[in-house]
Simulated assay, not measured.
Amino acid sequence: MMKKVSRLKVSFGGMMYSHDFQLWYTYLKRRIEKGWRPEELSFLVGRPDHAYLDFEKMYQVRSFLTQESILLDRIYMSSYIEPMEFHRERYEVTEERLVRLHIEEDEVRWHYSIEIPWQFVSQKKSSIALQFEEWKAEKDIQLESDAMLHVRQKIEGLLDLEFFVHGAAPWQLFRKVKETGQVHLQIYPRHLKNVLYGLIQQNRLVVRNVEGRYSFYPVDRKMGHEKFN
């Protein structure tokens, strides 16, 4: 007897201009290609866990893009935008339209399906992938342990170099720790986050909100308080 696969289906909608949709789509595609989860992007931009997830759910897309697109391009080290050319009649004006996102989740993956209110200029363009599959990562305990050890050693080195003295942003730290030189060992933002918050629990780092973004500072071990120059 075949085991029945349980599925969870949710849908979201948001009003967007076509250019904003182009960027939203680009960032969704980038994230999935990296194998990162939305909360990992929230961490990298120094925001609460829900911030990037709200963006993917199409909540205040234009506002989020205005605040975060430059930093997101820096994180991905790319400013490439997925090419899209939509058909528009001469008399039409640019206006916000409703876009819908449907997510179907089961034990092994998320399936994304996007409904858009625009037509592509070329029929060839209509074949652009408006459906994605994101596979859930299989946790390898040894690889997770190796990744955490690598990040911890890198962060210890940065602490010794006083890299944190003036505050260190998550995206800056990730750039410092992500290269391992080992093909089989991949560092994800979650590894960095776990290490940093472990050091906070050990009273070696503190996290502060600086102009709406989280930044990490060292604790003076002798005095037991934050260390500033």
Score class of each variant (00 low, 15 high):
4 K>G: 08
6 S>K: 13
6 S>W: 07
6 S>R: 10
7 R>M: 07
10 V>G: 04
10 V>W: 03
13 G>P: 13
14 G>H: 06
15 M>K: 14
16 M>N: 06
21 F>D: 03
21 F>T: 15
22 Q>D: 01
23 L>I: 11
24 W>Q: 09
25 Y>H: 14
26 T>I: 12
28 L>W: 06
28 L>M: 03
29 K>Y: 10
29 K>W: 13
30 R>A: 12
32 I>E: 02
35 G>L: 12
37 R>Q: 06
37 R>H: 06
38 P>C: 08
39 E>P: 02
39 E>N: 10
45 V>C: 01
46 G>I: 02
46 G>A: 00
47 R>Y: 08
51 A>Q: 01
51 A>E: 02
52 Y>I: 09
54 D>R: 07
57 K>V: 13
62 R>S: 15
62 R>L: 14
62 R>N: 15
68 E>H: 05
68 E>A: 05
71 L>M: 09
76 Y>F: 15
78 S>L: 09
79 S>E: 03
82 E>L: 05
83 P>L: 07
85 E>Q: 12
86 F>H: 04
86 F>L: 09
87 H>R: 15
88 R>E: 10
90 R>M: 13
90 R>G: 15
91 Y>C: 14
93 V>T: 14
93 V>G: 13
94 T>P: 10
97 R>H: 09
98 L>K: 08
99 V>N: 05
100 R>T: 14
102 H>N: 10
103 I>R: 10
105 E>Y: 03
108 V>S: 10
108 V>M: 05
109 R>S: 13
111 H>P: 08
112 Y>Q: 06
113 S>F: 13
115 E>V: 14
117 P>D: 08
117 P>C: 12
118 W>R: 07
120 F>L: 03
127 S>E: 13
133 E>V: 15
136 K>Y: 11
137 A>W: 11
139 K>S: 10
140 D>G: 01
140 D>F: 07
141 I>F: 11
142 Q>R: 08
143 L>M: 12
147 A>Y: 07
149 L>S: 06
150 H>S: 12
153 Q>F: 03
156 E>M: 04
158 L>W: 03
161 L>V: 12
162 E>Y: 05
168 A>K: 00
169 A>E: 05
171 W>A: 06
173 L>F: 08
173 L>T: 02
173 L>P: 02
175 R>H: 11
177 V>C: 04
179 E>C: 12
182 Q>C: 06
182 Q>A: 12
183 V>T: 11
183 V>R: 02
187 I>T: 05
187 I>E: 00
187 I>N: 01
188 Y>T: 00
190 R>N: 02
193 K>L: 08
194 N>A: 14
197 Y>R: 05
206 V>H: 01
209 N>K: 07
211 E>T: 09
211 E>D: 09
213 R>G: 04
214 Y>L: 04
216 F>K: 01
217 Y>V: 03
218 P>H: 04
220 D>M: 14
225 H>G: 11
225 H>E: 01
227 K>Y: 13
228 F>P: 00
229 N>R: 07
